[in-house]
């Protein structure tokens, strides 16, 4: 049975190790975005023209998809704590399906960029675009694999309302992908 006091500095929801990783990831991506902004201020013409090549509608749709996926995963944890394993499973698979949707849409965008010659070496803007979104893509992929393992174990009955810490940790990793995308989306697509 889970009797952890989350108010202790050593036991944040999801676990201390994951929260250290979350903060390090946010710092890493924030540093990338700061470097991107600085380069943008040095070469405003190149960055402004290159941004025109991005499909803001896809970026917007992907943000809605990823946030909705995050909602499903949060609901999965919520239902598991209430003892409703069946509903928790449904929410988990729903969240994963949306996560897969994000990757499919992002892959379409990547292929489109490559076909139009906007690869990593095209210019400074696309170097940052590929590094930042590519690195985030890898995080979502890893997150999906983690959720898949959790969903399979959930189906096997490994987790219950008295044993849900792994699910909480996996969910926190997934929400970290949301947080990173929330930083990337406005800077790369909107501004």
């Amino acid at each position: 049975m889970n009797t952890i006091n989350n108010k202790s500095i050593y036991y944040p929801p999801g676990g201390i190790l994951l929260w250290i990783i979350i903060l390090l990831e946010l710092v890493t991506f924030a540093a990338g975005i700061i470097a991107f902004s600085y380069q943008s201020s040095l070469n405003p013409g190149i960055f402004s023209d290159s941004k025109e090549a991005l499909n803001v509608h896809i970026g917007f749709a992907n943000t809605l998809i990823l946030l909705t996926s995050g909602f499903f995963i949060a609901q999965s944890v919520h239902h598991l704590r209430k003892g409703n394993e069946a509903k928790s499973q449904k929410m988990m698979w729903g969240g994963m399906l949306l996560g897969l949707g994000f990757l499919v849409l992002k892959s379409y965008e990547f292929v489109d960029k490559i076909e139009h010659g906007f690869d990593l070496s095209h210019n400074a803007f696309f170097m940052y675009y590929w590094l930042l979104t590519g690195f985030h893509f890898m995080h979502v992929l890893v997150g999906l694999i983690i959720l898949l393992v959790l969903a399979i174990n959930l189906r096997k009955g490994v987790y219950s309302k008295d044993n849900y810490l792994d699910i909480e940790t996996g969910a926190s990793f997934w929400h970290m992908c949301d947080l990173i995308w929330l930083i990337l989306f406005p800077i790369l697509y909107l501004l």
Binding site: P13, A74, S172, H175, M176
Partner: peptide, 12 residues
């Protein structure tokens, strides 16, 4: 996202 989905509201 941090406070509600990640439950940071419950953390130290």
């Amino acid at each position: 996202v941090a406070f509600q989905f990640m439950e940071l509201k419950k953390a130290h």
